[in-house]
Structures are given as C-alpha cells and as structure tokens.
Write a protein that binds this DNA or RNA. Structure first.
Lengths: 223, 223
DNA sequence: CGGGCGATTGACTTTCGTCAACGCGTGTGG
DNA sequence: CCACACGCGTTGACGAAAGTCAATCGCCCG
C-alpha cells in the first residue's frame, strides 16, 4: 500500500504489515463464514474471489493482482462472505484489521487511504455491474481483456501480451457467460485478427478495435 | 445512521448531519463529475444511481431507500462517478465528509460504523453481480422482488405488498434485461399465481415459490 | 508415455431482444 | 368537467444471441 507519507507513519505501517502468507496454486486465502480478522494485500500472484450462494450457485466476483486488497467484504459482519483462491503461487501481506484502525486514528492520511481503497473497490464493482448489465458477449470479453492488460501495464508488464491465469470457465463465470461462449469469442477475435491466442497466452493486436467494441453502437468491429 | 453510542457522540453526530436536502421526483442529488464533498443518508423516498459510460451506455446500479447511504463511490477521486436521481419526492441528510473523518478519529465506534457501511455496499454489489452473472430473467425478477420486499419489511412496511417506485425500464436496466422482458415476466408470475400486479402495485402471493426460483436448479416453479 | 483436464468446435435448443401495435391511466388544458 | 395526449405498460411475432449437449483435440503433468 504505497502512499507518500511521513517516514514515521511508513515505519508504523511497515511493522503492521510485516506478516506475510504464501499460497500455492489452488490454495484458499480465506473462505466464506470464516471470522474476519485481517485484510490482505496481494504482493505477487493472482487470486480470484468466488461467491457461493446457499444452494450451489457460484460466481467469480473478481480477480486480484499485486497491490490489490482482499477481504473488505468481511468487515460488515466480522465474517468473510466469499472464498478467495490463488490462481497461481502467490504471496499476500496480512493487514490486521484492528491495528489498521488504531493506526488510522493516529494518521489521517492512512484513514483517508483506507477509505479510498474501499471506494475504489466500489467503483470497480460498478464497472463490472455495467459490463454484466449492458454488454453482449463479445463486448464483455473485449472489455475483460482490455481491463487485464491495463492493470498489467500499470504493473510494468507488456501492454500487448499477457498470460491468463484463469480458465475459460472462470472467465465465463466472471463475465456471466458459459465457457464455450468465451472460447468461441476468443476464436472469433483471432479470426478477425484482433488478437493472437495460444492456450492462455494472448497477444493483443488491435487494442483500438477491442476498445471500439466496448462502445454501445458496436454492431460490427471497426476497420 | 442510528447506532448505540454514548450520548456525547450521538450529539456530535446529530450536529454533523443536521443539514438536510429535499428533492422532488426526478431531481438529481448529484451527478457524475461533480466534486465530492459529502455523503448522503436517505431519510425518505427512493433514489436510483445511474452510471453512464463515455459513450451512451447507461446502467442503473442501485436503488436506495431510507437509511441507505449514497455517495461512497465519490471518495476515490474526490469526484462523483454516477448520477443519483429521486424516483419520488425524497429527503436526504447531508454528511460532510471531512467532518465525518474528524469525528471518526475521535470516536472509534463511528469509524467502525463507517467501515461497515462501505463494506455493506460491497456485499450488496456482490449480490447484484451474482444475480447478473448467474441468473436467468425470471430468477432475476424474482430475486429483485424478494430483495425489495425484504428491505421494505425491515422498514416496517408490509411483507407482501409493495409499490414500485421505478419504471419497468429502470428495473430492466438494473437487472440487465429489456423492459419488455421485465413486463412479460411480471405477467407470467401473475398467470402462475405467484403475484398480483396492478400497475406498480404488487402483491406477493407465493414468496416461497419466488424464493425457490432463485435457487439454481429451478427449471420449473415449485407447486 | 499416458492420462486427464482444459479448450475447441459443431449442431441444435432456448432464451431473450427487437420491432411494432395497442391499451391503460393519469394529469393537464380546453 | 371532460377529452385528449403522452408516458408507461402489455402483448405478439419474429430473429439474434447465447446456452446446451456432445465429440474431439491438445497440452501439461505426473
């Protein structure tokens, strides 16, 4: 959680988050129902959050990469409401919630930062809602790829190549689509020369065309 | 924002939220791009939040009734990211954000409450994501009605009758469906004896059957 | 090298969206 | 006070989009 803060505050924060946890691929960071005690900041690797309703319905609600914060939904009832699972080997910082609150009272900048983190999560969810509520399959997949590449780019990776850490099924769950539809859409993008795809390795050839697709009037891809 | 707090804290909070704002039906509380200065607690009436993307795409992201908090998305960038509009005459409390932060530092219980409010919003959004991502039209409408009636019941209204404050189009936007689909689904529920509907007046006859529908294996309605 | 999971592709079905016509009510103005 | 108009809602016929079911392929990993 890097912010520009006075050194003494940074020290206190560093001490607070000195505990880490390593996760192997497939391992769960926390599960629904588990008591909430800490937030987690991803240091490396990718995780997914999965909500499971009373009876079998299940939905990927987000993918998290380095710097992103997990566990905020647990604050409400002091209990986690979703499962978070590592999609590859990963490491997270443990942020003990009570300590965070104590420090927040001392350091207004930290309090403010905490609020922004939660607000960012809300904005992100709203964007996802918009995608699920108003986009067709192709548009969703295009938006998904652009979102991923954007986040990767901000982390210093290529802006044209990426490796998907999740299966087609997980992408489909997140996008409200079936895995076959995701697969077909990738194939179509390849046919149309918008991307190259070999397994989970994706190269974006025409980001402009993908972006155009996320606009509402997109009946056909731009040329 | 009623919580059980020491009287001195309650006094301070009361003073903070003493400013109100009245809205006529159709009036906007805030719009996207507007500087963020305060949160708003609904005192009476119903509001909707609408996200509008760069180019024409538009989506209702939530409906808000008494006691619910609006404006949290504005914290991130000190700027609102959606429009909020009164669906009927309404009144809100104005909660100046800076004052809230100051008080939160003094009163841990308020800080904690503030975090829970934000967390609740996240949980609510996740539930909506799940609905949009994994339910079919009938299931979404059933879940929507049950959600509304539940919130109304918690506010002391009937658990079987309600008056929709929003149009079919707004419901459709929220649920990721077209207004015709919403209308047809209501009609089908009436045919099947699950609800009565006269315009926006809805009576829930078989909450059990609606609830059963929100379960994943629901191919046919229960008898 | 073999097994299994994940991905792809095809054929068909279902669901929902689209376009269009019409009906109902409410509120407003003559 | 009545009539009309407009917004909202309903309904039908049709088409497009995505889901389902099933077969096959191809990587990885053991």
């Amino acid at each position: 959680m890097p912010v520009d803060l006075p050194p003494q505050e940074l020290d206190a924060i560093d001490r607070m988050v000195s505990n880490r946890r390593r996760l192997l691929k497939g391992q769960r960071l926390y599960v629904a129902g588990q008591p909430f005690q800490a937030l987690y900041a991803v240091r490396s690797g990718t995780l997914k959050s999965v909500m499971t309703s009373d009876e079998g319905r299940s939905q990927v609600t987000g993918f998290f990469m380095s710097g992103e914060i997990l566990g905020l939904e647990g604050i409400l009832e002091n209990q986690h409401t979703c499962n978070t699972i590592a999609l590859e080997d990963a490491e997270v910082c443990i942020i003990p919630y009570e300590e965070l609150n104590t420090l927040s009272r001392q350091f207004p900048a930290l309090q403010s930062h905490m609020h922004r983190v939660m607000s960012r999560e809300l904005v992100k969810d709203h964007a996802t809602l918009m995608m699920l509520g108003s986009m067709r399959a192709e548009e969703r997949v295009a938006a998904f790829l652009l979102n991923l590449i954007d986040r990767l780019q901000k982390r210093g990776f290529s802006s044209s190549e990426l490796v998907l850490r999740m299966t087609r099924d997980e992408i489909g769950s997140f996008l409200g689509l079936k895995l076959e539809t995701v697969s077909r859409t990738f194939s179509k993008f390849v046919e149309d020369g918008l991307i190259e795809a070999r397994q989970r390795h994706i190269r974006i050839l025409r980001p402009d065309a993908l972006a155009a697709m996320t606009l509402p009037n997109a009946k056909s891809a731009a040329n």
